[in-house]
Structure formats: C-alpha cells, structure tokens
Design a protein around this nucleic acid. Structure first.
Length: 576
RNA sequence: GGACCUGUGGUGCAGCCUGGAGUGCACGCCGGCCUGUCAAGCCGGAGGUCGCGGGUUCAAAUCCCGUCAGGUCCGCCA
C-alpha cells in the first residue's frame, strides 16, 4: 500500500515514484492550480503538491502517489526532516473522510485533558503521544532484554485470583458458575511469583498488569504495569544487582546515557536527612539536627525530643501570609507548628534573627542555630520540634514543597533505600503493622528482638527511588515456617486466620520452598519520568480520570439485568 | 471522607475581584480570492443553555448556596 513512510522521504529519493499514506495535517491552498498538503504518519510530515481542486480536509486519510522532487530553491523548510523535498505530480486517493477534529492534532496546542481522553484515538496521533508510547515500548524491550540476559524466564500469572484481605482494596469479579463467590484481580502477582519459586522456576520476571481499587493520582491509576521479578537462592544484594542492571539498561536506551551506579541510603538515613523514604536527591536543603542546640532551651515551642530545621536559601523575603500558610501545612502534616526565622544581616542590632520566637532565643541559641544550619543573611530557617519521626516527615514535606522541582526534570537521581523497618506503627488492636507485607524476612541481626522490641526490627526490604518518586519495592521473603509463624504471631494473626488467608501459600511452602527474593518496578512512572511527563496518564494509551471513569468508553457503566441475574447479583440501595 | 484550582461558540484564552445588551483576542470551521506555501495570506460568514440548579438584585458569565465534571493534593495505596 505504501513505499515510504511520510517522515522518511529524503533527498536520496528524488526522482523516485513513491506512495505514502497518512492523515492530512494541514492544507495550504493557492487557487485552483496549486495546494500543499502536509501528510502525517507516526514518522512525521511530508509535503505533497496537489491541484487546488482536490477536496481533502483535516484528518482525511489519504494515499498519495507521486514523484519525489527537490523543492525549488529557497523554499526548503529546515524545520522538517523531509523539508528539502516534496512529492509532486500527485494522484490522491481518499481512503477515509473525517470530521473536523475536536482539538488540534498538534503538540503546540494543549487541549483539555478530559477531551483528549474522550477522543484518545485522535490525541494519540500527536507527536507527543506517539513518542511517549514508543518510548514505553523501547523501555519494555530493554527491561525484557535485561532480564533475559540475566537468566530470567517470563511467566504469565492469572488475572482471576483469590481474595487475600490485606493491603490495597481489590477489584472484585463475581463468579457466574458459583453464585455468591468472587475472584479478585491481583494487586500484584506477589503470591503467584512466590509459588513459581516453590515450583522451581528459579528466576521469574513478567511485565505484569496490577490492579488496585484505590483513589487515583497523577502517579496512580487503577491499572498499572510493573516489571515483576523473583529469584531463588539469592539474597538482597543479588536482587539489587539484577534490577539495577535492567533499569540502567532501560535508562540508557531512553536517554542515551547510562547513569552511574545507583547510590544507596538506609531508610534511617533517608528519613534523617530528607524526611522521607523517597528522597529527591537532585537538590540539597537537607534536614539539619538542632536537638543539641536547643537541648536546654526555655522556649517551650522548641523543647522536644527532636528539633530539626531546613534552610531556604534567599527565603528571607517570604511573606508573612505564606509563612502562616506553611505553618498550617505543618500542622496538617501532624506537627505542632512551625518556627521560622529570617536571618538578618549581622551587626544590625540584636540577634541576627527575625521571627515570632526570635526574641526568646539566647545568644547561644542563635549562634548554635546559625552554625549548625550554615544559614546566611537573607535566608529563611524553618524549625520543627516534636517526636523524631514527626519532625522528619513534616520538614521532608516542606523541603519538597519549597525546593522541589518537576519529577521529570533532569538529572536522573536513582537511589536504593534499604533496611526499612519491618513494622510501621501499631494498629487499633495494638499489633504492629507490616510495613511491606507479612512475608518479608527480618534483618538477621534483629531477629532476636522480634518479640521483645518489634518496631526496632529492620527488614530485608528495599525501595528504588527516582527524583522523589517511588519506582518500586521488594524484599527477601520468608521461606521458613518457624520464622513465618513468629511474624504472624507478632502481627496478631493466629494460625487459623493465617491458614484461611494465605493457606495455599503456606501449604506450598511445606512442600519445599527455596530461599527467594524479589522486586517490582513501576513501569508507568519510569516511562513518565524519561518521557518528561509529570503524570503517568501521558504514557498510558487509554487512561482513566481521577474519579475512575473513562470518558471514551463511558466505563464504568450499568450492566443489563440479564447479566446481573447470570451472576446472581441484585442492585441494592446505597446505605445512608 | 476532606482541602484547593478550573468550567465562557468546535479549540485555547480574556472578561468575574468592582453586577449593567453574549463583549473581545487567537486558532479552527464554512464560502470566496490567490501558482511556492509551510501554524500560508487576504475578504466575507456561521457558530453561545457563560457546566447545571437555586438564591440575592430593577438587572447575574460576574455576588451567595448547592450540585456535576476535570485537575492537584491529604486520607487511602500490605
């Protein structure tokens, strides 16, 4: 049907008879004798010279046959890859007519996202979306190649799975053959891949769709895609190496440069320095410990087990209303408040600090704060005093709020976060909550504190972070029944409950479970960052809106009464 | 469950704060002119439930309340 793609016609083709197919991007008429038609396909544009009498309009689908000629002197278009040539003596075949598009098929005009998703089939013709989806394919291929090269075997796992009430809310699929029972769509292939290890697959990977019925965000859709990985007879170091290899391959293919080795921080260090377990390493503004400075302070607002601060360089001009706003935000994040100090030029009377608490500080306080933070005249210092974790998380948020940059902006700063705590917080029944999942292996050095001091126990789990986004997480799994029983006991899950929830997994483990460990990388986020996008919707062909609907298909929709009956379902009024 | 932002011809915006005739800009669309344009140009034209409902007012795109949709975020996401 065609000899060339539109964007690939070149001066070497001059004199050749060619046939190209594509969409009418633009038409420039010069009377009945002459019109220029820019024909577009996924490779780009080519100019076709046609008689002015040919009736073609925007987005018509054409096959154009003609002869490639150099453009007349002075009429080349340096902005086009095909700008030195054009197709002349054209015969035009209209393959499809088209209504005027609902918005311009053009990267220079940014249409409303709702419209773009409703008419996604038109939106996808834009170079931006073409580039994003093709980059995604390149990254998928690189990840696959990286895993294959390391001896991993791709295995598909079921989408119809059993409910495992734990973690994210699951999408439920009613059974037609057994009324009153349901499958669920997997939040991830977590349990399936562990069973593959018991099954001797040794090294498994999959580019797997995961489904979670949780609220949507710029970096979260109901359905998302992970590079899912699991390997037997390996430990944490092996997994980090496998995944680093594949991800750095993908980064290299996407950006043309291979990032240097991925640096590593412990969870404790990340929290201490950046106030988050997904630190953005592209900028400083690290948290500074001021606990010692204010150890004996008389200022009640600063008397706390932990005091830390961040310096906003040049932030001295921040308005009072903005500072009040930040204080409110600090409270919403769980802090008692926010102390702020403007650093004044030295020598101008008093303390050198300005702010509501400044006049209560001693000279030693001021000197200590300035030395510890290194703040200079014109800077703003934000201080939070509270429990250690609260101080860190509040300042961590403020740090990103005040110093953060768009996630996709270079440079790309990967980080491994290791040594996560095994448990985070305490649930309503007074039991610790698993930070990762209940099959995560505790750190061997901490195993003897599992019962006596559970919240101090580290786990063998690890996250991959890029520019402040969590790209993925993984862990070494528990393969020994005795350790697993102890974990369940600490979590307050009795043997019977464990059996009913995870029986098939625990049963499998009784048949010979190899030590194993794994990881999963969020591909949507990885692609978005390399595509220069702030939302994963831009790298998904057919995304949903924040309320979970699809303006193109109208999903979710009611189903016919017959379908409901087949499934044994009846709609009931929503509870008040 | 909550906070904030947005909603105006097909598209993107301005108008809203400070109420006074659906007013404006750019693109697109339709028709005409035009033989070297390239986001072509020139002339003419069509196209509106100012998201929806209610309230205040002599008068509402504009102010108030509610609601719907989209977005950003908090909660949520083992």
């Amino acid at each position: 049907m065609r000899t060339h793609r539109c964007g690939e016609v070149r001066p070497e083709d001059v004199g050749r008879r060619v046939r190209v197919c594509g969409w009418v991007s633009r038409r420039r008429e010069h009377g009945e004798h002459l019109a220029f038609v820019d024909l577009r396909d996924h490779t780009g544009l080519v100019q076709c010279v046609v008689p002015g009498t040919v009736d073609v309009r925007s987005e018509y689908v054409l096959a154009v046959e003609g002869v490639v000629r150099a453009r007349p002197a002075g009429t080349a278009n340096p902005d086009l890859a095909t700008g030195e040539v054009e197709i002349q003596e054209c015969t035009v075949e209209v393959l499809s007519v088209a209504e005027p598009p609902p918005f311009a098929v053009d990267d220079r005009v940014d249409a409303d996202e709702h419209l773009r998703i409703r008419y996604r089939f038109v939106d996808l013709r834009r170079p931006r979306m073409q580039a994003n989806l093709r980059l995604r394919a390149v990254i998928n291929a690189a990840l696959r190649a990286g895993m294959e090269r390391q001896g991993f075997c791709e295995v598909e796992t079921p989408l119809l799975w059993a409910p495992t009430p734990e973690g994210a809310r699951e999408f439920v699929v009613p059974s037609r053959l057994q009324h009153g029972t349901c499958y669920v769509l997997p939040q991830s292939p977590q349990l399936a891949k562990q069973l593959l290890m018991v099954g001797g697959m040794d090294r498994y990977y999959q580019i797997a769709r995961c489904l979670r019925d949780e609220d949507l965000r710029a970096d979260r859709q109901f359905e998302f895609t992970q590079l899912d990985v699991e390997a037997s007879f390996v430990g944490q170091e092996d997994v980090l190496r496998f995944v680093s290899e594949a991800v750095l391959d993908a980064a290299e293919r996407a950006t043309g440069t291979r990032p240097s080795e991925i640096e590593r921080l412990t969870w404790a260090e990340a929290m201490d320095r950046f106030g988050t377990d997904k630190p953005d390493l592209r900028f400083g503004m690290e948290l500074v410990d001021l606990t010692a400075v204010f150890a004996g302070t008389e200022v009640r607002a600063l008397a706390a087990p932990c005091v830390k601060g961040i310096v906003v360089e040049g932030g001295g001009e921040t308005t009072r209303s903005r500072l009040d706003q930040l204080t409110d935000q600090a409270r919403q994040l769980g802090g008692k408040g926010l102390a702020w100090f403007r650093v004044l030029p030295t020598g101008e009377g008093g303390t050198g600090l300005d702010g509501p608490l400044a006049r209560f500080l001693t000279e030693d306080d001021v000197a200590g704060l300035l030395v510890a933070t290194g703040a200079a005249a014109g800077d703003l210092v934000l201080v939070v005093a509270d429990e250690h974790l609260t101080v860190c998380t509040v300042l961590g948020r403020l740090r990103v709020l005040l110093g953060g940059r768009p996630v996709s902006e270079g440079p790309y700063r990967f980080a491994w976060i290791v040594d996560f705590p095994l448990f985070e917080g305490i649930d309503g029944d007074g039991n610790p909550v698993a930070a990762h999942h209940p099959f995560t292996m505790p750190h061997p050095d901490d195993l003897d504190r599992l019962e006596s001091d559970p919240t101090s126990v580290r786990s063998q789990s690890y996250d991959l972070v890029l520019n402040g986004w969590e790209l993925g997480s993984g862990s070494v799994r528990i393969h020994r029944a005795d350790v697993q029983s102890r974990i369940f006991a600490v979590l307050g899950i009795g043997p019977e409950e464990a059996e009913s929830r995870f029986g098939f997994l625990l049963g499998a483990f009784r048949h010979g479970a190899p030590p194993h460990a794994g990881f999963a990388v969020g591909i949507d986020r990885l692609v978005a960052i390399f595509a220069g996008e702030e939302s994963i919707r831009e790298v998904i062909a057919f995304p949903k809106t924040q309320s979970g609907s699809d303006p193109m298909t109208g999903a979710p929709k009611p189903v016919a009464p017959r379908v409901m009956a087949d499934l044994g379902l009846r709609e009931v009024p929503a509870p008040e």
